[in-house]
């Protein structure tokens, strides 16, 4: 759902809570966190969607990578998962479902996560996703609410998945590029997450449906700070800007822009296609990490060192104007 619609639907509802809830519904975050003991807290998250690629096996992998990502973004380690399946079993070959699930299982295996069960329903449209549970030390939780003035903002995957996927529907994308984007979406954020915790970081989120600026907006509002983005530094998938200029922009990108219109100032010098990419909804996008200025170079070197070559420092956290994002 668009961020505006979800806000409208939930506005004013009261959700029960207790003193062990460390991260709940009162503010936007990637996953919920519940304290079990002094040493241990549970991270819980769920995510599912309709197919974004034609190949069922890759769809399964992407859905799993996407669901796991929320746990990584909270600084945790995913441990168990449950499948969520909607499938038109009477109209479609069951081998398709089998391949989706196989993709999910293989990705969980890569992440060292076990599948404990799941639930399936008959539906006209395929949907697949997972609920994932992870663990974290209560002092090591990475929320969106504590980023510090002077932190550098690091993005670990290029943007443009939504635009490329729209252009794929229009049969404008080469097999090579489709394959490249599919693999990027199926890439776990695990490695980036394992690296980042060794550095002086103050917060993290993963880039998904609200786009880079939508998720960054949650961070700056949650932390009472502002941010500046240097658009020239933002990694973008090849051809995504060309496709944006041709109108291959998902509807959600426009909704994301509209929803955050008042808190984001974009300089006239930023090309329109770049602006679109900044609001482009991502499936299984990269991590956005706030790291101290002193440690930013070390984090980048470590990320590049393990082959996360497209990660880049894209901006900085500032004091004023608070709760605003400037792009120039």
């Amino acid at each position: 759902m668009s961020p505006g619609d979800l806000d409208k639907a939930l506005c004013g509802l009261v959700f029960p809570t207790d003193e062990n809830v460390l991260v709940g519904l009162d503010r936007a975050d990637d996953a919920g966190v519940y304290q079990i003991s002094e040493e241990l807290a549970l991270i819980q998250t769920v995510d599912f969607f309709t197919p974004i690629v034609d190949d069922p096996y890759w769809f399964g992998q992407i859905a799993a990578a996407n669901a796991l990502s929320d746990v990584y973004a909270m600084g945790g380690v995913p441990k168990t998962a449950m499948n969520l399946v909607a499938f038109p079993a009477k109209e479609m070959e069951l081998t398709v479902l089998r391949q989706i699930i196989q993709g999910g299982i293989d990705k969980l295996k890569e992440a060292g996560v076990v599948l404990l069960g799941g639930h399936s329903i008959e539906d006209r449209e395929i949907k697949y996703g997972l609920s994932v549970t992870g663990i974290v030390h209560p002092d090591k939780i990475l929320t969106k609410g504590n980023i510090r003035i002077g932190d550098c903002l690091v993005l670990t995957k290029p943007l443009g998945f939504g635009i490329i996927n729209t252009a794929v529907k229009a049969a404008m994308v080469s097999t090579e590029l489709t394959e490249k984007v599919t693999k990027l979406m199926a890439t776990l954020n695990r490695e980036a997450a394992e690296i980042m915790v060794n550095f002086d970081i103050s917060g993290c989120t993963d880039i998904t449906g609200f786009g880079l600026l939508g998720h960054l907006a949650e961070m700056v509002c949650g932390s009472g700070v502002g941010a500046r983005i240097d658009f020239g530094e933002v990694p973008v998938i090849e051809k995504a800007l060309d496709f944006a200029d041709m109108g291959m922009i998902p509807t959600v990108a426009y909704e994301n822009r509209e929803f955050r219109r008042e808190m984001i100032t974009i300089a006239d010098t930023v090309p329109r296609a770049v602006q679109d990419v900044l609001f482009d909804p991502q499936t299984s996008g990269g991590l956005l990490i706030a790291v101290s200025g002193a440690d930013a170079g070390n984090l980048m070197a470590a990320l590049h060192g393990v082959g996360i070559h497209e990660s880049a420092i894209i901006g900085v956290v500032v004091e004023e104007p608070a709760e605003r994002i400037m792009v120039a």
Binding site: D245, M246, G247, M248, I249, P250, T251, A253, Y254
Partner: peptide
């Protein structure tokens, strides 16, 4: 009948 399609079609024609 919607703003996203309007902007996308306009941009495509301009391209």
């Amino acid at each position: 009948d919607n703003g996203a399609s309007q902007q996308n079609v306009q941009r495509f024609l301009e391209s």
